[in-house]
Design a protein around this nucleic acid. Sequence first.
DNA 1: CTCCGCTAGATTGTATACAATCTTCTAATC
DNA 2: GATTAGAAGATTGTATACAATCTAGCGGAG
Lengths: 220, 220
Amino acid sequence: MRAPRAPEQRFESLVDALREAILTGRYAPGTRLVQEELAEAFGVSRIPLREALRRLEGEGLVVISANKGAVVRPLSPKDVVDLYELRLALESLALRRAAERFVDLRESTRRRHAEARRAIAARALPTLFRLDRDFHADVAAASDNPHLVAALGAQWSQIMRVMHAYFQVEMYPEAVWDDHEAIVEALAHGDGEAAVNVLTRHLSESRDAILAHLRSKVVT
Amino acid sequence: MRAPRAPEQRFESLVDALREAILTGRYAPGTRLVQEELAEAFGVSRIPLREALRRLEGEGLVVISANKGAVVRPLSPKDVVDLYELRLALESLALRRAAERFVDLRESTRRRHAEARRAIAARALPTLFRLDRDFHADVAAASDNPHLVAALGAQWSQIMRVMHAYFQVEMYPEAVWDDHEAIVEALAHGDGEAAVNVLTRHLSESRDAILAHLRSKVVT
DNA sequence: CTCCGCTAGATTGTATACAATCTTCTAATC
DNA sequence: GATTAGAAGATTGTATACAATCTAGCGGAG
């Protein structure tokens, strides 16, 4: 029997579970979300489930049409371009602020790099996603600007959906993790511009890899 | 008798009405939002009202604690600084993209300037807010990046709350509207950097006016 | 006087039930 | 055969009712 979880967190857990299912592609972009099915799957009634969908609608992960129901927000190639462009602007700001404060993320980044090497060898894509997300979450937090953290969190959710939809293990070469190390090295020396330069190239490469992959597969 | 509004839009109307009440300060930051009262006020039952609150929670306008209820998200002086910093980054990106496309907003901006002169004379603060919001919404749309538009929309909602909480008519001198004209002039010539320069000063002045006003009034 | 602990009232959380709407399938008409 | 009308089923929207939780006020112990 499962512990019936402290009621104070029941709703947040529901939202987190649903969000995670969307980010990891278990409910892929465009998927119809039928209330009764989801309620059953998550062990709640439709009332709290509907509230959770409204929350995710506010976060931009779900689209709800009156009397038609909820759908996981679709993703197009243009979304990929737009998201990366926006993400670069947000993350650059985060890096500049973090650099001003000489934030040092070298230790945790090095640990993640080691773990990433093992994950690459094991071709454990979900682990790589998590490590990547953790790194960029650290950078966001280092900005000391909660509104920026929130905005980056929303963007990163979208990026996660893109990755789970389109990424291959091949898109996570060692170089990615070297870039992370270069970024935190620049941060530790207070050189925000150097960090931004690495990030700019880093994101371009990610984006182009995804777009190339898209072009090779989809005709639309 | 009020027209019972097409059901397809009932929920969106409810959300819009609630959001507007929050943005205009009718429900000021920190205000407790009691479900039964709001449901009564907006002519719906608690079920759709709760969903609307969840939506606004996702948008960052409301904070909901389990079993304690909803509160209009509080605002601190640091929020003002953080929001303006974030807004500058987002709006700069929008200006650069708009400039690349040689978007011409001069006509509508000139019309708004004229209307603003009348509003200043009449000390019609809400009108000035609307005109300001409309201008920056136009700039956002000109970026042709829906994700950026959404992010800027969320930021602007917060800025509106700040303005309604702290702004005075004196903070809307003619110069503000001259800045808008200078920005669209630069845009029309494809000079994104010039537009960003004006915007940077524009936002600093706004922010500093608010902070000065805060320091003169509040001791916290 | 202060600090607990308790009860009554207020408020939030959600299950159930039903109304409203949409979707799909069938069948009749042209 | 294509098209439209209609009805049955599926699904969403919300009111009602009740359970769970919190809050405020009161009285007693220290």
